[in-house]
Amino acid sequence: TTEYTFTDDEEARRAIEELKKRGLTFRYEKHGTTWRVRVD
Rank of each mutant, 00 (worst) to 15 (best):
T1W: 15
T1A: 10
T1L: 11
T1R: 09
T1D: 08
T1H: 12
T1Y: 15
T2S: 07
T2C: 15
T2M: 12
T2Y: 14
T2V: 13
T2A: 09
T2N: 06
T2D: 06
T2K: 10
T2L: 13
E3P: 02
E3M: 11
E3A: 04
E3Q: 05
E3V: 14
E3G: 03
E3W: 15
E3D: 06
E3H: 08
E3R: 04
E3I: 14
Y4F: 11
Y4I: 06
Y4A: 02
Y4Q: 03
Y4W: 13
Y4C: 15
Y4S: 03
Y4N: 02
Y4E: 02
Y4R: 03
T5M: 10
T5Q: 07
T5D: 04
T5S: 05
T5A: 05
T5L: 12
T5R: 06
F6A: 01
F6W: 03
F6M: 02
F6N: 01
F6Q: 01
F6I: 03
F6T: 01
F6D: 01
F6Y: 11
F6S: 01
F6C: 12
T7M: 08
T7H: 11
T7N: 09
T7S: 07
T7E: 11
T7Q: 08
T7V: 06
T7P: 03
T7R: 06
T7F: 12
D8G: 05
D8Y: 03
D8F: 04
D8L: 04
D8Q: 04
D8H: 05
D8W: 03
D8E: 05
D8P: 02
D8R: 06
D9P: 13
D9T: 05
D9M: 10
D9Y: 13
D9S: 08
D9A: 12
D9Q: 07
D9G: 07
D9E: 13
D9H: 08
E10M: 09
E10W: 08
E10I: 09
E10R: 09
E10H: 09
E10S: 09
E10G: 11
E10D: 12
E11D: 09
E11A: 11
E11W: 06
E11K: 07
E11G: 05
E11L: 08
E11C: 12
E11S: 13
E11Q: 11
A12Q: 01
A12Y: 07
A12E: 01
A12R: 02
A12S: 02
A12C: 11
A12T: 02
A12I: 04
R13M: 14
R13K: 11
R13T: 08
R13F: 13
R13N: 07
R13I: 12
R14T: 08
R14Q: 11
R14G: 05
R14M: 10
R14S: 08
R14N: 10
R14D: 06
R14A: 12
R14W: 07
A15Q: 05
A15W: 15
A15I: 10
A15D: 01
A15R: 04
A15S: 04
A15T: 10
A15M: 15
A15P: 01
A15C: 15
I16A: 01
I16L: 06
I16N: 03
I16S: 01
I16H: 00
I16F: 05
I16E: 01
I16C: 07
I16R: 00
I16G: 02
E17Y: 08
E17W: 10
E17T: 08
E17K: 11
E17D: 10
E17N: 10
E17L: 11
E17A: 12
E17R: 12
E17P: 00
E17V: 08
E17I: 11
E18A: 10
E18L: 10
E18F: 10
E18M: 10
E18K: 07
E18R: 06
E18S: 10
E18I: 11
E18G: 07
L19W: 09
L19G: 00
L19S: 01
L19I: 06
L19A: 04
L19H: 01
L19Q: 00
L19M: 08
L19K: 00
L19F: 14
L19E: 00
L19D: 00
K20T: 10
K20V: 11
K20E: 09
K20M: 12
K20S: 08
K20I: 13
K20A: 08
K20H: 08
K20R: 12
K20D: 04
K20L: 11
K20Y: 10
K21Y: 05
K21R: 13
K21L: 08
K21M: 08
K21H: 07
K21A: 11
K21C: 12
K21F: 05
R22Q: 11
R22W: 07
R22K: 11
R22C: 12
R22H: 08
R22T: 06
R22G: 05
R22A: 12
R22F: 06
R22D: 04
R22L: 13
G23L: 03
G23K: 04
G23W: 02
G23P: 00
G23Y: 03
G23N: 05
G23D: 03
G23V: 01
G23M: 03
G23R: 04
G23I: 01
G23A: 03
L24H: 06
L24S: 05
L24T: 04
L24Y: 10
L24D: 03
T25E: 09
T25I: 12
T25Y: 12
T25N: 13
T25S: 13
T25V: 12
T25W: 13
T25P: 08
T25A: 09
T25R: 12
F26T: 04
F26M: 03
F26R: 00
F26E: 02
F26S: 02
F26Q: 01
F26N: 00
R27W: 15
R27F: 14
R27M: 11
R27Q: 13
R27N: 12
R27D: 09
R27V: 14
Y28M: 08
Y28W: 12
Y28S: 05
Y28D: 02
Y28H: 03
Y28N: 00
Y28G: 02
E29C: 14
E29S: 10
E29W: 15
E29A: 06
E29T: 11
E29I: 11
E29L: 06
E29Q: 06
E29M: 09
K30A: 03
K30L: 06
K30N: 04
K30M: 05
K30S: 03
K30F: 05
K30H: 05
H31P: 00
H31G: 03
H31V: 14
H31I: 15
H31L: 13
G32D: 05
G32F: 02
G32E: 06
G32A: 03
G32S: 03
G32M: 03
G32N: 04
G32R: 02
G32T: 02
G32W: 02
G32P: 00
T33E: 13
T33M: 09
T33Q: 11
T33Y: 07
T33G: 14
T33R: 08
T33D: 15
T33W: 04
T33V: 07
T33K: 11
T33S: 12
T33F: 09
T33H: 08
T34R: 07
T34I: 14
T34G: 06
T34D: 05
T34E: 13
T34M: 12
T34N: 07
T34P: 00
T34F: 12
W35I: 14
W35K: 02
W35G: 02
W35R: 02
W35E: 02
W35M: 04
W35N: 03
W35D: 02
W35T: 10
W35F: 04
W35Y: 05
W35V: 09
R36A: 04
R36W: 15
R36K: 13
R36T: 14
R36F: 15
R36H: 14
R36G: 01
V37G: 00
V37Q: 00
V37D: 02
V37M: 02
V37H: 01
V37C: 04
V37P: 02
V37Y: 00
V37S: 00
V37N: 00
V37F: 08
V37A: 00
V37E: 02
R38A: 11
R38F: 15
R38I: 15
R38E: 14
R38H: 13
R38M: 15
R38Q: 14
R38T: 15
V39E: 01
V39T: 03
V39R: 00
V39P: 02
V39K: 00
V39G: 00
V39F: 05
V39H: 02
D40P: 09
D40L: 14
D40A: 11
D40E: 13
D40G: 11
D40R: 08
D40T: 13
D40S: 12
D40Y: 15
D40C: 15
